[in-house]
């Protein structure tokens, strides 16, 4: 089985976010970039399938700028992916998630994989658009928030769970499918040191922006960042004074209704 995994570098979870001088984006200075949490689950899932289906290969792809994109591709190779493809994004290329999906589709259409895995969304912009858009571009089904993905070889079907409001759908799908995985349900492995060292020298297939740019378009109509805001720091709680529990309850409900306006 040919499996493709989409990965994306995102700031480490504990990163202290700052606003860039432009006021419209995050300040990328001093950020430590890592493989997105949901993507770790996607890589793990790809490796589990590879281990269970003889003759499988895992290709990891990422669309993004140097050097962080190359770094997460090497991290994926260290985890066990067979082959890495980096679609280079120049710093000044104006794109959005739909453009990213078009760039990836342009590369995958030549040899469509049997399965495309991704995180259900990345922990930075949380758009969750690339997987569904890629499914549409490749003309295959797509499902996000998936767990328990398995391959039923006897019936040539993928089976998986898709958590929706109020319950869980059990889904079956044929070869050629895009799946966005739920985070951390499969306990992603960590890379072994020798593999990390080897991954530093592993070849990475580079695809120039010029190759995919005609498919992506010039960014006309793509959403433009207008502002990036951080929450105002809290100054400590307003403490509710009371004599009886009932008094405290009445006071809190009144504040939630009249002041905070969050009472349902």
């Amino acid at each position: 089985m040919e499996i493709a995994v989409l990965v994306k570098p995102v700031p480490e979870a504990e990163t202290r976010l700052r606003v860039a001088a432009s006021g419209t984006t995050m300040d990328p200075d001093g950020i430590k970039w890592v493989l997105a949490g949901y993507d770790e689950s996607a890589v793990e899932q790809a490796l589990l399938l590879k281990e269970s289906i003889p003759g499988s290969r895992v290709r990891v792809l990422s669309f993004g700028p140097a050097p962080r994109t190359e770094e997460v591709l090497r991290a994926s190779i260290a985890l066990g992916c067979d082959r890495a493809t980096w679609i280079e994004q120049p710093a000044d290329a104006r794109t959005d998630p739909i453009g990213t999906a078009r760039a990836i589709a342009a590369v995958l259409t030549a040899a469509p994989p049997d399965l495309v895995l991704a995180g259900k969304h990345a922990g930075d912009d949380e758009a969750g658009l690339v997987g569904p858009a890629l499914g549409e571009l490749l003309g295959v089904p797509s499902f996000g928030g998936v767990t328990d993905l398995r391959w039923d070889a006897a019936r040539s079907r993928f089976t998986f769970l898709h958590a929706v409001e109020g319950g869980t759908e059990s889904v079956e799908a044929m070869l050629h499918l895009v799946v966005g995985l739920q985070q951390a349900w499969n306990d992603p492995r960590t890379a072994k040191l020798p593999n990390i060292l080897k991954s530093r020298k592993a070849p990475i297939e580079k695809i120039a922006w010029a190759t995919v740019a005609p498919h992506v378009g010039d960014g006309t109509g793509a959403p433009v960042p207008a502002k990036f805001r951080l929450p105002t720091p809290r100054t400590g709680a307003k403490m509710i004074e009371y004599k009886t529990p009932d008094e405290a309850a009445v006071a809190l409900v009144r504040l939630l209704k009249e002041e905070a306006k969050v009472f349902p």
Partner: peptide, 11 residues
Amino acid sequence: VFGGRATQELL
């Protein structure tokens, strides 16, 4: 965005 740790405005 960022799990609610920041807000993005887009045009």
